[in-house]
């Protein structure tokens, strides 16, 4: 693949043409905050945390869906970007009901960690306090809309990796919701194979194992890499 040369935070670097800016930044060891991105799933530029500034444009660009380009001049942690990142995180906390102290994901949550890392010490916006249900109809798992950040990792893993496409989104803006099937109780879904992939990739306490209590839920994404290496390179590591 042809090599492109670009400038990142005032340093000259090179990348592979066609690769995403986010993957290059990660290779360079630059820590980029992300929530909707997950190695092994398609990127959608939804959470906007990986936004960067590109010289010559007032717009901000989500690094996960921006390909590297020859001559690009990129800034990843300007004050403007850091402020927006904090605002995004505060808006996520204000939009649903996050009460970490009594959440199953407490201590192992990507949203909670990103908030702390990005300097969020409080939420400047009024909490919307939406009246949202939980779906506990599935025999193994629970969906709690109160903790969902609409990252669609569940939608993508179920569609792209499991091939069942149980999940999708309905509604718009703050009224958006993750739905199973055609908006039916998850437990009634005929297409769900009960594989649990959506639960493991969910960054928050929105998808959890049935019966887990406060701070008990921990997730692991290793299976994604394992499956993809197996499928793409025909290397199945059973060790």
């Amino acid at each position: 693949m042809p090599v492109v040369t670009l400038t990142v935070n005032d340093e000259l670097v090179s990348g592979q043409s066609g690769q995403s800016l986010l993957s290059l930044l990660k290779e360079l060891g630059i820590e980029m905050p992300t929530l909707c991105h997950l190695e092994g799933l398609s990127d959608r530029g939804g959470c906007r945390l990986c936004m960067v500034e590109l010289q010559g444009s007032k717009r901000l660009f989500a690094a996960c869906v921006t390909p590297v380009q020859e001559g690009m001049v990129v800034y990843t942690h300007t004050e403007r970007l850091n402020n927006y990142r904090r605002m995004i995180l505060e808006l996520l906390f204000a939009e649903r009901n996050h009460v970490c102290a009594v959440c199953v994901q407490n201590g192992h949550c990507e949203l909670q960690t990103q908030a702390a890392k990005n300097g969020m010490d409080s939420v400047r916006y009024d909490y919307l306090v939406p009246d949202l249900p939980m779906d506990a109809s599935h025999e193994r798992y629970v969906l709690d809309h109160n903790r969902c950040i609409l990252c669609t990792r569940c939608v993508r893993v179920c569609d792209e990796i499991e091939g069942a496409h149980v999940w999708d989104l309905m509604g718009r803006g703050v009224n958006s919701r993750v739905i199973a099937g055609l908006n039916q109780p998850w437990g009634d879904s005929d297409s769900c194979t009960k594989c649990g992939k959506c639960v493991q990739v969910c960054p928050t306490g929105a998808l959890t194992l049935r019966g887990s209590t406060v701070a008990e839920m921990e997730k692991q994404h290793d299976f994604l890499k394992w499956i993809l290496t197996g499928r793409e390179k025909k290397q199945w590591d059973y060790s």
Binding site: N97, V99, C100, A101, V102, D121, S122, Y127, V129
Partner: peptide, 18 residues
């Protein structure tokens, strides 16, 4: 100084808000 999550976010005390 907001001292603890309830002062900072409303936390458990605000569970009744709905």
């Amino acid at each position: 100084v907001s001292f603890g999550d309830c002062a900072v976010t409303g936390n458990v005390t605000s569970l009744r808000n709905r």
